[in-house]
Amino acid sequence: MTPAQRHTIPLRLALYAMMAVLAAIFLFPFLFMLASSFKGNDAIFADGATLRAVLPVGDLTTANYAHAFARGHIGHYFINSLVITVTTVALGLLVNSLAAFALARLAWRGKGAVLTLLVILLVVPFEAISVPLMVLVAKLPGVMFGVDGLVLTRSWLDTLYVQIVPFVANAFSIFLFYQFFRDIPKDFDEAAYVDGATPLQVYAHVIVPASLPVFATVTILQALAMWNQYLWPLITVPGEAARPLMIGMEQFFGARRTAWGEVMAYAALITVPVLIAFIFFQRWFVRSVVGSGVKG
């Protein structure tokens, strides 16, 4: 019997009702953003105080979206953000899960201390290290594609990789992997070792397949963090070549009068793909768990 079939009808209705009410609460600003993206500045504020704020009513226009594409360079920034996100997440999954494997599955001295250190690193807020980190990358020798090919430069500023490399190793991801790995029964490991496997093989063939939910979770969370990156590129990427999406949104705020309609359109263009990706990614996440049948 599936879980769904077990619930009685009144219970199901009650649950649906609860989910719907919660959905309304959680969806409110998203609907506001979508509705406003089709309105002009004045209409947004006129409707702001009422429920009309979330409804696409009144004078609707697609001019905001046209502007976002035409004047907003959104295509270029989108590709930058995509490259940054995919690279950081892919490298991060590898690097962080390997480190977590070492913590959770290998025996060595000082594990407790390193674990505590890891939790402590979680405490360091980015704002605390942003300025020293900026000073650091400003002086790190880097590479760039110049007119004549690969060129050595004196700093990492204004590149795509300055937005990638510092964020690959991530204490939060390591911690998340660690917690999950700890719960996987050691019997599988032992069986593999008895068969003569190396730790790397145990990692690849035992732990990873059993940890797909946490891999999916880390992917989603890291991807989101990198997609929404704002403070760091703001100070290290002055140019437009390597500029990511969130910085691109700033151009509508510039002067003193904010073009709210265009801001909303731009924000919608950033947010909607992420949510769609999330929905699709989820299906894979759930299916893989149901199929793996690890626990028990």
Binding site: F26, L27, F278
Partner: peptide
């Protein structure tokens, strides 16, 4: 295990995705 829960998940997750300014 209710039907459509993947959509609800996205809905509850959407505030996390949205820009802080908005």
């Amino acid at each position: 295990g209710l039907r459509g829960q993947t959509v609800f998940r996205a809905v509850y997750f959407s505030p996390v995705v949205m820009s802080m300014v908005i």
